[in-house]
């Protein structure tokens, strides 16, 4: 067991190094540098560009730049190109903003997708199942920002509440209740939008898993020995159908950064996705690279944890 864990961690560390090298190479080889963000600015002289390049070590060979990045990152004094703030602190602040959105969206996704997927697998071919299938395809086919615009207009006109950004400006002196209410309204719509895609995908997955499991012999055996239907479905079938979802858990984590770029932009939510987007616009290499690395680290930790959980949950798996 311990050997298995250690080997897994070792493999993932090697993967991580390769990911970081690859990301570093892609970002640095692509044309477009921090010094070229504003090429039409007449005050930008050739000497200034030289100075900027030297200050950011952009003249050094790639592997030296990689070394500088890693050294500063590990020492914790990696600075953003744009405003010279420590990168890790910046990301941590944004991470705390993204977290409630991610948690709420995940909760909504699971609370809707699992009951929905299970019931449509049990009622296979019925109108309910067909409508559900159609509806989930309908929702994933919507361009996200189009649906968000429609929902924003609808919510604002119907309920007359503000939904853009994290909180209403100027409510700092209001009562705690008003503030909490305000925060919840701001949180609902972006979380719902992020969840919609997840619900559509996950419920399809649950449905097909459940369908496969209820055709197995042991389900027939359970029924044959006279167990009531609830027992058969929720104790025998569901447990086995849930196994693959342990592995999905790990692959969901990159969505914390990637999936939220669009919605954080639409709802002006100051989270990690938006930090990444702004960093891309200003060619802020340290922020882009560190965000990418953090996403990779989170993914690898997620897959490691889900591998271990899988091994614990499924007695057929041996180390």
């Amino acid at each position: 067991m311990l050997a298995f864990i250690l080997r897994n961690i070792g493999q993932r560390l090697i993967l991580l190094v390769i990911v970081s090298i690859l990301a570093h190479t892609i970002v640095h080889l692509a044309p477009g540098e921090p010094s070229l963000v504003d090429p039409s600015n007449p005050r930008m002289k050739a000497e200034d560009i030289e100075r900027i390049r030297a200050a950011f070590h952009l003249d050094d060979p790639l592997h030296v730049q990689y070394y500088y990045w890693m050294r500063d990152l590990l020492n914790g004094d990696l600075k953003s190109f744009k405003d010279n703030q420590p990168v890790l602190e910046k990301i941590w602040g944004r991470f705390l903003n993204s977290l409630p959105l991610f948690i709420l969206a995940t909760l909504i996704t699971w609370c809707v997708a699992f009951p929905f997927g299970i019931s449509s697998a049990l009622n296979r071919g019925s109108t309910y199942d067909k409508t559900g299938t159609f509806l989930s395809y309908f929702l994933i086919s919507f361009p996200g920002f189009f649906l968000s615009s429609l929902l924003i207009i609808f919510i604002v006109q119907t309920f007359d509440v503000p939904v853009i950004s994290m909180r209403t400006f100027g409510l700092e002196d209001a009562s705690a209740w008003t503030q909490i209410n305000d925060r919840i309204w701001h949180l609902t719509l972006p979380a719902l939008m992020t969840a919609i895609l997840g619900i559509a995908v996950l419920s399809r997955f649950v449905r097909s898993q459940m369908q496969e499991v209820i055709l197995h012999d042991y389900i027939r055996t359970a029924r044959a020995k006279g167990l009531d239907e609830d027992n058969v479905i929720y104790k025998h079938a569901l447990r086995n159908a849930l196994l693959p979802f342990i592995t999905m858990f790990g692959l969901m984590i990159p969505g914390l950064i990637s999936g939220s770029v669009i919605f954080e932009q639409i709802f002006a939510w100051p989270g990690m996705g938006r930090l990444g987007y702004d960093a891309i616009l200003s060619r802020d290499f340290p922020v882009i690279l560190t965000l990418n690395l953090i996403a990779a680290v989170l993914t690898l930790i997620g897959t490691l944890v889900s591998d271990l959980l899988y091994a614990l949950a499924d007695p057929r798996i041996k180390f």
Binding site: P254, G259, G273, I280, N292, A295, A296
Partner: peptide, 13 residues
């Protein structure tokens, strides 16, 4: 390795 990258973020970059 490719699955470790946040896809949309990578495309955007």
């Amino acid at each position: 390795i490719m699955l470790c990258f946040p896809t949309f973020f990578l495309i955007l970059t």
